[in-house]
Nucleic acid binder design. Sequence first.
RNA 1: GGGGUUAUAGCUCAGUUGGUUAGAGCGUCACGUUGACAUCGUGAAGGUCAUAGGUUCGAGCCCUACUAACCCCACCA
Length: 906
Amino acid sequence: MEQQKQFEMAKVYAPREMEDRIYEMWEKSGAFKPKIDKSKKPFTIVMPPPNITGQLHVGHALDEMPQDVLIRYHRMKGDPTLWLPGTDHAAIATEVKVVEALRKEGRSKHDLGREAFIDRVWDWKKEYGGRIVKQLRKLGVSCDWSRERFTMDQGLSRAVRETFVRLYEKGLIYQGWRMINWCPCCQTSISDAEVEYEEQNGSFWHLLYPVKETGEMLELATTRPETMLGDTAVAINAEDERYRHLHGCHVVLPLINKEIPIVCDEHADMTKGTGVVKITPAHDPNDYEVGKRHDLPMVRVFTYDGHMTGKAEAEENARLIAEGRATKDEPVVLDCGVYAGMTTMEARKAIVRDLENLGLLKKVEPLTHEVGTCYRCHNTIEPMVSKQWFVKMAPLAKPAADAARNKDIVFVPERFEKTFLNWMDNTRDWCISRQLWWGHRIPAFYCDACAKVHVSREDLTVCPDCGAPLRQDEDVLDTWFSSALWPFSTLGWPDDTEDFNYFYPNSVLSCGYDIIFFWLARMVFSGIEQTGKCPFPVALMHGLVRDAQGRKMSKSLGNGIDPLEVIEKYGADALRFSLEIGVAPGADVRLSEEKIETYRNFANKIWNASRFALMNMQDFAPKGVPSKDKLALSDKWILKRFNDIVRTLTDNMESFDLGMGAYNLYDFIWSYFCDWYIEMAKHELNGEDAEARLATQETLNYVLTGLLKLLHPYMPFITEELYSYLPGHEGMLIEASWPEAKPEFDFDEEAARMDAVMDVIRAARNLRAEMKVNASKRATLILKPAAGMEPAFRLAEGYLNRLAAASSVEYLGAGDPTPEKAASAVTAGTALFIPMGELVDVEKELARLNKELENTLGEIKRSEGKLANPGFISKAPAALIEQEKDKIEKNKAHAEVLRERIGQLA
RNA sequence: GGGGUUAUAGCUCAGUUGGUUAGAGCGUCACGUUGACAUCGUGAAGGUCAUAGGUUCGAGCCCUACUAACCCCACCA
């Protein structure tokens, strides 16, 4: 049976053949479902929900990696482990996609109407929403698909509504006219966090406004001349001597000849430009504040779709005002006359041209400045005064910031705590209403009869006060409003469910640092407000994926790596490892196909090491743990080193040093296990001594099995496959056990002696390489062992033969003369000689030995200098002083052997 | 303007609370293939740890200043 297995095992690792099969097996076995055990502490992570519009890209792959590694580690440790997956409805992104699809059919969402449009989006969701979820499986994510959630499913919608009503009832959600960011393209408001600033080339137009009282021209500059029709004042600084005579005066707004006041306000900066600034309260955030301070009227000149307002809009507005339905906070709409209906850009040109014709354009300066753009469509944001819903942030931000300051939430790495606090301490109210159809509709109901607003957990049709019919608010909520509840809404909150009670708070939240404000911060304050608990004690951040040159991956640069393609080519394990190895928490990752190839090669290495092990375990029935009696020196050495790596890896996992853990494993498996241990084990495995062979088989099996387990969180597929081949658990899934270091295998002394032997092997190889000896040519190795080392070398002769190409090993006593026609080297007091007859160039040999002697003497001097320093003696730890003394001893012995050899050759 | 990060070998990066003669991968060069693996092995070359001070018995690591690159937030009339 086993015999067959071996021959079935391909010589080359072929991930494609196994990964889908293994994933299916995992899913069928229910391995990813936690077993709730009240006596145990669970380990929980909720997956950042990808957008249903999404296609898997390397960013997702990076996002999943730390989570899957931690989840698999904790599952192996035996913790009831839940990784909860799901998707986000992505209000704007999805709506834009579907609107686009409709446009191709020659229709608009308004042609369909609200209900039909939403049906259409659900259809779209059914068709494409599952795509990313299928693709995620290719990465090997071990989440519990039976608990998959969607931000707009019934339960989560109820959580959203409950949250909204609670916040409203506490006065933490309010509706009002405020300055907001308006995207004329998406035709919706967006939050401050959704504005991205881009550097753009623009102009600085210097305009002249005539002063009514004095007739002089007041020069001011603007980057947005199209807003001038909405100016309701001009501001100067009260301290500005240049304009002291204008206090209380007015200017006549050109083009519409409207008289507006000159006001004194701190916003006017004397050091900038002419110190005069035009004030457009309806279209600029700063001017809005100035307007409030001076009780200036607000005049709106832009429509919500990016045109200049005209007669129709102005009349509609006038009507509302006349009927008393417009509040004081609401801007007055201007009929822009000849400019009406123009886009803002057309109006800019026309207004500048007209001003120039009037001689009121003094000059135009080019400038580059940061312009706010929509994070979705990248069109320029227009600041607008608009009626929206807001979350009052101050009372929510305070406890969230406290949680970070009290370390109820810890950031990994630490520095992101500052980013988080900086935002929490300065955040402004959150605009949560979006003028979209796809999303959670705002549960506010208006009564036109009694002008009341009802916010309710249930849909209302008639006014509870007056019985008149109600109409629901047309807007939906910011998509992040629902994702902010993700750590608990997915577990059944607001109901008192078993999942919620057991798995909340979550254990860790892992996401990219680019969504700290969008998501993480909002989860923290929402969790604290709604559940009274910080939703997770640890925020593990990761960075961005970049290309080999460190650039962001983007379609326009064409430098993207398609994860599905590279999985197809190199396997998911290779991709996973590439994204994790050597990456410090929070650091960006450079990814290239070459890098992925390197770790595919690593997988192949493991594959072949296992193949080797299996070939040598045909006749072997493991007892599980090697018995100590017959272990070879190399067995003891690897058992000790394996203990070390188990301890290290466990530390790495517990401290979230996942990149370090991967690196440690790579190094251990390739160098310690493959290059050294397997090569040495060949001696015992091919030897005559049946008991020694058995002991090595036990060791090989024990260590390899353990290594596969340690590597499993990073490379789940190949480790699962190989594990199932190893004797003792053929066909089994990797059991839920994380390896433990066994103190009885801490063979410190033997390991140290083995290391000394390895030094000699390296020195011999080095000599041979320098002498350009053909690797297949064997030669006698003559050793003059350091004190007490001869027994170790005798035990290790098999390794010396095999790894240092020694045809035989001879030993010299302390007083014995050393061979002359030999290349020589000294390591830790042991001298080694390889007789090479005439090949040896005595001059070169001497030069080399002298150089080494010089180095050694230098070292001794350095150590002696240290020890001669009274400060060092009195303050350094005793162990270090001992170490330094020890070093002198060793180096002296080393130098002695070198001198002896030099003396003999010279 | 506020906050943050980075600077170590040709390239990409490690380097834990300060404690050997600063490491790895890739690349380069030399040698090597008959049975785990050329998706491989062995060996070598290559670094004044950005700069200047400081603290310390001791600094790649801590502090200050400076230089350069990058990121985030705010602002730019």
